[in-house]
């Protein structure tokens, strides 16, 4: 949708080397790092080159950020919002279509360009190809001669590369035996930060067999072939894998995790959450209970973004890996 309006999106997930205190001018200490650091990044001029800030509504923290940006901080850029429905019913789909129509009108104002049918079709073709490349990347994982760190670097480049460049990049990843040994883990949460985490897990004699990360596998969308571009966009967004921020019932999330963990040979689940992430925190005890019953041990770790990897966190993960080995 953004592409059809000649806009290129770049996502912000707690940029490194940004001090939290600039964000604390607006948000209390108990607000999640992703929001506080995004605010700090915006205040520091990190996105001055952009035309607009789009804040998707997925949780109370992002809601607060969108509102504070709009009402108080008022950056030079236009602040846009998008409410993502929490259900998967027909009414949710119809609402999302209308919400996207509202957003589309604003995008026309931002870009000065209203896409025609051909431009919509071209945009879908390119982005569907990138979605397919991402899904294929996950499918080919065991046949790629790259480390977990390199794999997730490639996955997350979808957050800033154009669709074409992303497809080109993942096509060049070397095939071969994956340099991964030891016990396989499934990792869940919002974002695995910093990338050093993957190196450390590897050094512990384990590897990441699969993920359930908001900026990872939960972004593997299915293509829709609806003619109406807004319905097509809505269908795509609503086709994501189970996700607590979308209101997926817990039993569905558990079933999906179990199925994938068995298929990928993961022996345990590492839930790796930034501090104060309520959507994730509510599910943790029930994920632990149900997965333990299914024979999968679970470790929950919370971290502060940009603070490196504390020794205590690594010790806990290491002990977890040892119990699985």
């Amino acid at each position: 949708m953004l592409r059809a309006h000649r806009l290129h999106p770049i996502e912000i997930w707690g940029p490194p080397h940004i001090a939290r205190h600039e964000g604390n001018r607006h948000f209390q200490t108990y607000a999640c790092d992703i929001v506080v650091k995004a605010m700090a990044f915006i205040r520091s001029g990190g996105i001055d080159a952009t035309r607009a800030i789009l804040v998707p509504h997925t949780c109370d923290a992002l809601q607060g950020m969108g509102s504070v940006l709009t009402d108080f901080f008022r950056p030079d850029q236009r602040v846009l919002t998008l409410y993502l429905p929490r259900g998967r019913r027909t009414s949710d789909r119809d609402f999302l279509r209308d919400e996207l129509a509202r957003l589309s009108k604003t995008l026309v104002q931002v870009s000065g360009h209203e896409p025609n049918a051909t431009e919509w079709a071209e945009a879908f073709e390119a982005e569907d190809a990138a979605d397919a490349a991402l899904a294929d990347l996950y499918r080919r994982r065991n046949a790629l001669a790259i480390s977990d760190r390199d794999f997730y670097t490639a996955v997350r480049s979808r957050e800033f590369l154009t669709a074409e460049k992303f497809c080109e990049q993942v096509a060049t990843l070397p095939a071969g035996q994956a340099p991964r040994g030891g016990v396989g883990l499934m990792i869940s949460g919002i974002v695995a930060d910093p990338f050093e985490l993957f190196d450390q897990i590897e050094q512990m004699g384990a590897h990441v067999a699969g993920d359930d990360l908001a900026c990872g596998y939960r972004r593997v969308y299915s293509a829709s072939h609806e003619h109406d571009p807004l319905i097509r966009t809505a269908n795509r967004l609503m086709s994501c894998p189970p996700d607590p921020t979308c209101g997926t019932p817990i039993h569905e999330r558990v079933e999906a995790l179990q199925t994938r963990m068995r298929a990928l040979g993961a022996k345990g689940l590492l839930i790796y959450d930034p501090k104060f992430c309520e959507p994730e925190l509510f599910d943790v005890p029930l994920l632990r209970k149900h997965l333990n019953e299914a024979g999968f041990p679970v470790l929950h770790v919370e971290y502060e973004m940009g603070e490196g990897l504390p020794h205590q966190t690594l010790s806990r993960i290491e002990a977890f890996v040892e119990t699985l080995s």
């Binding site: 509504h57 949780c59 919002t81 409410y83 929490r86 259900g87 817990i250 309520e278 959507p279």
Partner: peptide, 26 residues
């Protein structure tokens, strides 16, 4: 709040009863 959605998902799992969602865009 969105908290209630996560909270009630936990209740639905525990009580095994239907959860009706009224989603109100902010």
């Amino acid at each position: 709040c969105q908290t209630v959605l996560h909270w009630y998902r936990v209740l639905a799992d525990y009580f095994e009863c239907p959860l009706v969602l009224i989603d109100t865009p902010f």
